[in-house]
Design a protein around this nucleic acid. Structure first.
Lengths: 217, 217
DNA sequence: TTTATAATCTAATCTTGATTCGATTAAATT
DNA sequence: AATTTAATCGAATCAAGATTAGATTATAAA
């Protein structure tokens, strides 16, 4: 009954990648469906076969990016290592995932706000597509919750480190926000043609924060 | 000959403040001239009396924000203090200026890209307003240059600190980007209703980086 | 082969929004 | 008072862009 999609046809993933690419260049609002479509040799109309609308496409890009990082984070958290080691790994994973796919990385930083400023889409006639809108809101809130969860992973290791006497910090919440800000910023200034690889940058940044966390500084 | 503007009339500054406010809510592309105008009880058309166009209005917001911080930064740089002290002051000034005017602060982070993606405005007929466009580009490039200069101020203190043996760091460039990322991120998550004041946040973040910079950590 | 469904396309539709034009009002200077 | 320039406004222009509607084509499954 169900048909396997043809190999040469464009799939969701292709579109998401392409969208991220265009998004980086133009930002959400300035990006047209046509722009995204062009990137995968489709027409704007065709995109609506894969995604219900522009907002939902954006959301999918962000969801994908976030889940991909979270997936890599969890095993590190669960491992039986020192907190210093774990935190170092987490920083590395976060930063390299941003530098390896700068498009998605930048989207994670820049395109979250358009998501928040959700304006109910233009009414078609008078038909309340309120259900669709609510669906979207729900999905979006889930995304934000996942984001909090992600931040929380960092906070957890930091606190664990403090409890174990491995780390010293006055305010773990702020420390984590400080770290995440630094990481996210990488997505903005990093250039593949720059002098340092993502790995190297990750190492430098990890050193910076771990040095700060070491007690008896 | 020239007329002093009437007291009750709206001036450039009012508009810039209002614009920043709206910008924070909606982001540049999603912000309409009407939105900005409404914030100061004007019509969209009236804004064109004060600014040549939307791009130029955005640029003015950013220029204002940047210069205001730079102004406060320079005397610190010039003072005869330890680098640790100077850096601490600079961090404080940067962060508090972001938290005291979060609207402009957020604009400095989010609205720079729309500036880069400058697309020559729709041609009026065929009349090359190329001069205006070039003017804009020039002004924009100046802004970017000032931004580099700003970043450079931090780099300078850090390097000076290293030279004097006050600081230890492997890569001052990356360290500064790390710091600035952390600072800028504050503009995004900070809420006036939150548990910490801008000052307190600034202190915590300064502590974090200075601890990391202290040699023989 | 048929058939159902996926993937696309072209051609509307319909709105929104930047910008321009031509008044109009108000205040400062002379 | 007369004149000039600043500030504003309402209405018109003009283009762009999201989304829909109605085909059309391709391909997997039966």
């Amino acid at each position: 009954m169900a048909r396997k999609p043809a190999d040469q046809s464009v799939n969701r993933e292709d579109i998401l990648l392409a969208a991220a690419e265009v998004l980086r260049r133009n930002g959400y609002e300035a990006t047209t469906m046509k722009d995204i479509a062009a990137q995968v040799n489709l027409t704007a109309a065709s995109l609506y076969h894969h995604f219900t609308n522009k907002d939902s496409l954006l959301l999918a890009v962000l969801e994908g990016g976030l889940e991909q990082v979270i997936e890599q984070m969890e095993p590190i958290l669960a491992s039986e290592q020192s907190c210093a080691f774990k935190l170092r790994q987490m920083i590395r994973v976060h930063i390299t995932s941003l530098t390896e796919n700068t498009a998605v990385g930048a989207a994670m930083v820049f395109e979250v706000r358009p998501l928040m400023a959700f304006r109910p889409p233009p009414r078609n006639g008078n038909q309340f597509d309120a259900e669709a809108a609510e669906d979207f809101i729900r999905r979006r809130d889930t995304f934000f919750a996942r984001r909090d969860y992600f931040e929380n992973l960092f906070r957890r290791v930091v606190r664990e480190g403090v409890d174990r006497g491995e780390f010293q910090t006055e305010n773990a919440t702020i420390l984590v926000k400080t770290m995440l800000g630094a990481h996210n910023w990488v997505a903005i200034w990093y250039r593949e043609t720059g002098p340092l690889t993502g790995e190297q940058i990750a190492t430098l940044i990890a050193d910076t924060f771990l040095r700060s966390l070491q007690p008896k500084g």
